[in-house]
């Protein structure tokens, strides 16, 4: 009885904010304007524009996830190797920007990267040729990496510091060199953190529409933008919901693939 009462707010939360909205998306996604059942909204993903947007989102999300991983892992290793005090200071500095709204930070990058922006003024001042980064896929990848990097660093770092030094020393005693120790001991043991980091970067990168709008100048259409436009200017909630369902399936599949690499099956983020 006591336990049940305690769980009640969470049950209400889950029903109100997950199950009902999800049911509404399924309802809208599988009906048309007159309320009749249809698969058209889901099948709409097959049109050239929509599937192109989906593949582009997938591609950009994969690239930014890979870049985040390549940047975050060495950083997490460094953090593990230095003293606790210094590493917590660095982690603190690293996540400090997250205290600001990510929309604001993305808008700041818009100002920095734009044609008359700070970066180009600096290049001009140094006598270097200016670059056009803003409104390209490059700018979007940059924005994703910048926004989501802390979500990769933290889980990897948290797993790494829990790997005891004794395991590394045992490997070395048994004759493994530094590289072998890393690939056969440290990296496999850190897999839960890597998988968790990949999920936390890949999913928001795959679904974002803010970063592509702000840094892509509205010229690059990701699947998130298609859905956003269906709901706003297109006022076609049925299409937006249908495409959202497709996107959810894509994310579920990628999480299922990732789960295979998580030896303990310990994380479901």
């Amino acid at each position: 009885m006591g336990k049940k009462t305690f769980a009640l707010p969470y049950i209400v939360w889950m029903i109100g904010f997950t199950i009902i909205p999800l049911a509404m998306i399924v309802y809208y996604g599988l009906t048309d304007n007159s309320g009749a059942f249809t698969l058209d909204n889901v099948a709409a993903i097959m049109t050239a524009e929509h599937s192109q947007a989906l593949w582009l989102s997938l591609g950009l999300a994969l690239i930014s996830t890979l870049i985040c991983l390549l940047l975050a892992y060495p950083l997490a290793m460094i953090l593990k190797s230095i003293s606790k005090n210094r590493s917590s200071l660095i982690v603190f500095i690293f996540i400090l920007p997250m205290w600001m709204n990510s929309l604001l930070r993305t808008m700041a990058w818009q100002t920095i990267l734009s044609n008359q922006g700070i970066l180009n003024l600096l290049l001009e001042f140094l006598g270097l040729p200016t670059v056009q980064i803003i409104n390209t896929t490059g700018a979007i990848i940059f924005g994703m990496v910048y926004d989501f990097l802390p979500f990769m660093v933290l889980p990897i770092y948290n797993v790494l510091i829990k790997i005891g030094q004794d395991k590394v020393e045992a490997a070395r005693d048994l004759g493994a060199n530094g590289v072998q120790t890393f690939f056969r001991v440290t990296f496999p043991l850190s897999m839960p953190g890597v998988v968790s980091g990949i999920t936390m970067v890949f999913v928001p990168a795959m679904t974002t529409f803010v970063i592509s709008t702000l840094l892509g100048g509205g010229k690059i259409l990701l699947i998130g933008n298609v859905i956003e436009q269906a709901f706003t200017s297109g006022s076609n909630w049925h299409l937006g919901s249908g495409l959202s369902l497709v996107l959810m399936v894509f994310i579920l599949i990628s999480m299922a693939i990732l789960a295979k690499y998580d030896p303990e099956g310990s994380n479901v983020v």
Partner: peptide
């Protein structure tokens, strides 16, 4: 309404086209 939707589709074509 039909035209609203058609305009939205056309706009998606523009936005999805190559840069």
């Amino acid at each position: 309404e039909d035209m609203d939707q058609f305009y939205a589709e056309l706009w998606t074509q523009v936005k999805a086209s190559s840069t």
